[in-house]
Design a protein around this nucleic acid. Structure first.
Length: 323
DNA sequence: TGCCAGGCGGGGT
DNA sequence: ACCCCGCATGGC
């Protein structure tokens, strides 16, 4: 599906905004290619922003099937996705001496979380369940490649995940090829729930706590997945998604008596305040999302800087390495 | 080979 | 409230 060029807008970068880092973290190559960042602004009609950096500004060119979106709507969506209005100075102040995150304001200075739509956020979260970083991102990669819809923007091909309506109609064999195992049933349940409850329209109006409760009504979606979904899509940071990986690392770093979700949640909220979930997000980046045993060794050696040059797959090189 | 991983729900206490 | 187990799949 080839999209036509509509218009360009320029955006003034906020303070503490690093375009390259923000574009790089957890991107596939159809999202970021080292120069341009491709953001899906809408699915109906399919609309993509090609964003690049130019001095103090970002330049965005908008492509779509129809000429509906306005310049101010496009600019507003891009600024939301890139987290322009977040006061990360406040986050940096909280973590500048933190045993886990102290290098975030130095090595990842100006990196923001790129948000996605609610459904995409949930798909990402489900792929992370009970799997290594590598396996989780492989599953997501398969979903994009085998079931996604290709949107052509000039000579670049952006891939959109199937929407809930499309996912429920997918051939079961095709979904099986994505190697999600038992998680594929969760995705089907989730897609049905989204459709029945018009969730993409209704959930953004809920508080974080209530939104988490609603997402947990989906069979196969527990606290971790619900919260991760809300972090990635709504930028709700006060409820940290705590998995075994985060829990064990926090236990070691803060010398906690246990690594239960309850204990770790209390401490992370204490340490990182209303930025707790953003802290969890950046923890995975500074530790290159390495498996738990390796992460614990790195913590012991105080090796908490992300690697910018490694053969292994990391959140920072996914865009160039994952094929 | 045989574990076990950025979870989860169901069934036990 | 907890604790414990099985669950698809891939990686090592």
């Amino acid at each position: 599906m080839k999209l036509g060029k509509l218009f360009s807008v320029s955006l003034e970068k906020p303070r503490l905004f690093n375009f390259k880092l923000t574009s790089t973290i957890y991107s596939f190559n159809w999202i970021y290619n080292g120069k341009n960042l491709y953001l899906i602004l809408d699915y109906n009609p399919p609309t993509v922003a090609k964003v690049s950096e130019k001095d103090k500004e970002l330049n965005a060119t908008i492509y779509s099937l129809k000429n509906i979106i306005t310049q101010s709507e496009a600019a507003e969506k891009i600024e939301k996705v890139l987290g322009f209005n977040e006061k990360i100075e406040e986050f940096y102040n909280k973590i500048k001496d933190d045993p886990l995150l102290k290098y975030v304001p130095i090595k990842l200075k100006g990196a923001r979380l790129r948000s996605v739509d609610l459904w995409t956020g949930l798909v990402i979260a489900v792929c992370q369940q009970n799997a290594s970083f590598k396996q989780g991102w492989r599953m997501l990669y398969n979903l994009y490649k085998k079931t996604g819809k290709v949107l052509q923007v000039e000579d670049h091909y952006v891939i959109a995940l199937p929407r809930p309506k499309e996912l429920v109609k997918l051939d079961a064999r095709l979904l099986a090829e994505c190697k999600l195992g038992y998680r594929s049933q969760t995705l089907i349940e989730a897609a049905k729930f989204f459709l029945e409850n018009s969730l993409e329209e209704k959930l953004p109006r809920e508080s974080p706590i209530s939104a988490e409760k609603i997402l947990r009504e989906i069979k196969g979606v527990g606290q971790y997945s619900a919260r991760l979904t809300l972090v990635l899509s709504m930028r709700y940071y006060e409820l940290p998604p705590i998995d075994r990986w985060t829990a064990r690392i926090a236990q070691e770093a803060y010398k906690l008596p246990s690594a239960t979700v309850k204990t770790v949640e209390r401490v992370l909220k204490e340490k990182w305040g209303r930025w707790a979930a953003l802290g969890v997000f950046f923890l995975t980046v500074v530790l290159d999302a390495v498996p738990l045993s390796e992460a614990l060794m790195r913590l012991k050696e105080n090796d908490l800087k992300p690697s910018f040059s490694t053969e292994d797959l990391t959140p920072l090189n996914l865009w160039s390495k994952m094929t």
